[in-house]
Design a protein around this nucleic acid. Structure first.
Lengths: 344, 344
DNA sequence: CTGAAAGCGCTTACAG
DNA sequence: CTGAAAGCGCTTACAG
């Protein structure tokens, strides 16, 4: 938009050096004498020169990675926090990150999945961070692009144990839920329920952790895990109505995530069940809803920013060492005890 | 990463045409005979050729705009929806949009505000969409970059009436709040309060609409608008505690936004004030919290996706017609009547 | 309509 | 350490 953009050529003329020298200065000033370096720097400053980034990119300078969020209509706060982690870390290491969203069906053939123009076109990004829900068809689509990527593993479908040819960052949902269930049991609860649609692998994983803890304590599992095509909120409401009819009624409920927990909380209140006096409640994720509840929700905290940072680190390693074996990094979680579990 | 990237040159050889012809085909195929066009297309398909985007960008092809979100720690759902609108619309017109965040203090000198690398460097983006909180110093920083931009006007500080030399998209907060207050008054309420820190221009605007309606009805304004350095949630809690002591106690409260409304709702419940039986409540924004409340919150809906789309449209017009006068587009709002206002 | 050439802004060997 | 030249992958006048 400026009438005449100043280029590397202008700087070279101004500083009375060759084009290559200016280029070297821009790229760190190695192999340049201090004298010329300062002269060139001065010229750059005087002319207000700023290198044209896309031009540099042609030759491999200026790395750029893409944070690709799939199948989230509203930008989900959970993933937004992961993105935040990516951004923050990228800044410190002078990496560029662009954010893209994509929507697709689980049964669309890989070739028909429409990617954002920034990915469809070649040359923009060097690598990908996959967040959101990743079905196998999407994974294949991405793999066919032949571009390095790392996935937030908890949301990937069809990963069960099989050896995978891509990098992952994840947390151990089974272990986390096992610990949450242990905590509830230690508080004296004997009828502990789990609520969550196990169609989703990340719910299934949490469910298995719940089962481990309950069986270990020689209690009977009471779970609502049926597949239902409804939102997590609706699922919680539905589950709450099931519980009032249950006999014995659980004294504690582990919700697959905070969204389900919130819906349970609201529904229980409507049914005149007080929390935690009548029912104890534990969530998962530690999202915004957890603090909106009253009392605040006891839940499993997932360190979203850390996940973002780990994704970026993993991707960078891959970019610089394409031949190394694939990794699956596992991040810790943390049980946050607030006010929704009663000691019996 | 592919061993040998195929270029326009490979396509030209394969199709037995010149480089220029391939370029023309890529860029829409005008001024090319149907025969050559199909031959080139075939070659492109066979070779799996995809043009290198940054290379095209050097010469002005491939437009790219930036959605710049400022001073939002967690990606605020409100702005996320605006971004969604931008993305969705951009897709239909084959525009690229990159998302960036920036953090700064209101009193940092413009020159010292650190922008994301994607903006600091030249050549990446053609235009900017400013969302988040925009203080005057930030506005100056952006303007000094000499790059076209459009701002989501409601969140810009220091805009009062003055003629501005940039494009804006906004909604009329005063009119919206006027209508909300009118509605409450028509339901029979005579003591109607407003809660919100008028330090924020968008709150001040809503407050003025509230005042208009109350005065028009010859009622006494009862407002809590003091400047407090706390979150909106804390502000709501604090305001609730003020109200229980007030005499006469307001029968209805207009909250500056849904976050304040949620805090009021929770605080009132703790104080054993039922909503809407004892106090009626109206929010603003129609964010996620509105539906988390029980009963659901009556609030003013802001069409966030529409704002995003309008921003993109405005920016594109500016990009293609740099000389046209600046515009301030005003989008409609909508009062969503749910369950928190009682008919007296 | 089409090819050959010059050019975009930068980087990278290549000599010195 | 440094300049002149060739090159990155693409686009844009320029002839024809």
């Amino acid at each position: 938009m400026t009438s005449k953009t100043t280029t590397i050529r202008d700087v070279a003329r101004q500083a009375r050096v060759g084009l290559g020298t200016v280029s070297r200065v821009i790229n760190g000033g190695t192999h340049v004498s201090t004298a010329t370096n300062t002269r060139v720097m001065a010229a750059i400053r005087r002319l207000g020169f700023r290198p044209n980034a896309p031009a540099r990119r042609i030759r491999g300078r200026a790395e750029m990675v893409c944070f690709l969020l799939s199948n989230r209509d509203v930008l989900h706060a959970f993933h937004a926090r992961i993105l935040q982690g990516v951004e923050t870390y990228a800044r410190t290491i002078k990496q560029h990150v662009v954010f893209c969203v994509v929507h697709y069906d689980a049964d669309t053939p890989p070739g028909n999945i429409l990617l954002p123009p920034l990915l469809e076109e070649r040359g923009w990004v060097d690598g990908l961070i996959l967040a959101g829900t990743v079905y196998p068809n999407f994974l294949r689509r991405i793999q066919s692009m032949g571009i390095p990527f790392v996935a937030f593993g908890n949301n990937v479908f069809g990963l069960d144990g099989r050896r995978q040819n891509f990098d992952r960052v994840r947390f151990d949902g089974a272990k986390a839920e096992y610990e949450a269930a242990r905590f509830v049991i230690e508080q004296g609860h004997r009828t502990v329920a789990f609520v969550g649609d196990t169609f989703y692998p990340w719910v299934r994983e949490r469910y298995s952790g719940y089962l481990d803890a309950v069986r270990e304590a020689r209690l009977n599992p009471t779970a609502i895990t049926a597949r239902k095509t409804m939102t997590f909120g609706e699922y919680g409401e539905w589950a709450a109505s099931c519980f009032v009819e249950a006999d014995p009624r659980p004294t504690a409920v582990l919700a697959a995530n905070d969204e389900v927990a919130y819906a349970l909380w609201r529904s229980f209140r409507r049914l005149n069940l007080r929390i935690p006096e009548d029912v104890s409640l534990v969530g998962f994720d530690d999202r915004e809803e957890a603090l909106l509840m009253d009392p605040a929700l006891t839940t499993v905290r997932v360190h979203k920013e850390e996940i973002g940072k780990a994704c970026m680190e993993t991707l960078l390693k891959r970019l610089h060492h394409p031949e190394k074996p694939f990794t699956a990094r596992v991040l810790p979680t943390e049980l946050i005890v607030r006010g929704t579990v009663r000691h019996l």
